[in-house]
């Protein structure tokens, strides 16, 4: 007897909205990046669960989750290099102190 698909969806939805919450309330750029990773992982769980339980005849969901992981890695690399650049310029990666661009 296997776990039904609904339970996977509950986990992934929770994970996704924990990520959204973290993106909104966290003040540290690295924490924000981690929250985004949580959201992307929730997406991967969704794809894999749907593929395994609802449409087992194709591999589309598995393939999509692979691409999501690869693109997320690229995105994180660029984001971290930009955050390092921000740190070099401002000696800080707190969102409150990054407000040069306001009139």
């Amino acid at each position: 007897m296997s776990i039904p698909v609904e339970y996977y969806l509950i986990v992934s939805t929770l994970l996704f909205f924990i990520g959204v919450y973290g993106f909104v309330v966290r003040k540290n750029l690295i924490s924000i990046l981690m929250s985004i990773e949580l959201m992307l992982n929730a997406v991967s769980i969704n794809f894999v669960a749907f593929n395994r339980f609802v449409y087992p005849e194709h591999l589309e969901g598995y393939m999509y989750s692979l691409f999501v992981i690869v693109v997320a890695a690229a995105e994180t690399a660029v984001a971290i290099s930009i955050i390092i650049n921000v740190y070099r310029k401002m000696k800080n990666i707190d969102t409150k102190s990054i407000n040069e661009l306001k009139n």
Binding site: F23, I82, R88
Partner: peptide
């Protein structure tokens, strides 16, 4: 400014 703009954009 450029670094800050990029951080906002990528996130």
């Amino acid at each position: 400014e450029s670094a800050e703009a990029a951080a906002k954009y990528i996130l």
